[in-house]
């Protein structure tokens, strides 16, 4: 059972952590520049990259059972539908 597991080394985790800190520094400094409407877009883009790092490496999903990826995609898709439908209703009301 245990010998099939993929083990991630300490260095990989530390590298991911450093990337996460760097992305945080970037998102904070960008918020200081006046970019108008793009600020939110860039902040959400960086948050998405950070999430991908956490989910893939820290949460191990990249190396886990494929069914967990299906779960993840399904919940993300559900959220997307809820957001799109709500805004569709809200904007064209």
């Amino acid at each position: 059972m245990g010998n099939k597991k993929h083990i991630i080394g300490y260095n990989t985790y530390i590298l991911v952590w450093l990337s996460l800190l760097a992305l945080t520094a970037i998102t904070v400094s960008i918020a200081g520049i006046h970019l108008g409407d793009y600020t939110l877009l860039i902040a959400m883009f960086i948050a998405a990259i950070k999430s991908a790092l956490v989910i893939n490496i820290f949460m191990h999903i990249k190396f886990d059972e494929p069914i967990f990826k299906v779960f993840l995609a399904l919940s993300g898709f559900t959220l997307l539908i809820i957001f799109v439908l709500t805004f569709f209703d809200f904007i064209y009301r």
Binding site: T39, A43, M44, S51
Partner: peptide, 25 residues
């Protein structure tokens, strides 16, 4: 591992809360 997954989720939620509340200019 499961406790770790829960903890990472808490981190993930904060990754979105942070720019949405603290970084609006």
């Amino acid at each position: 591992e499961n406790a770790g997954l829960y903890w990472h989720l808490v981190d993930l939620i904060w990754i979105f809360l942070f720019p949405l509340f603290y970084l609006i200019q």
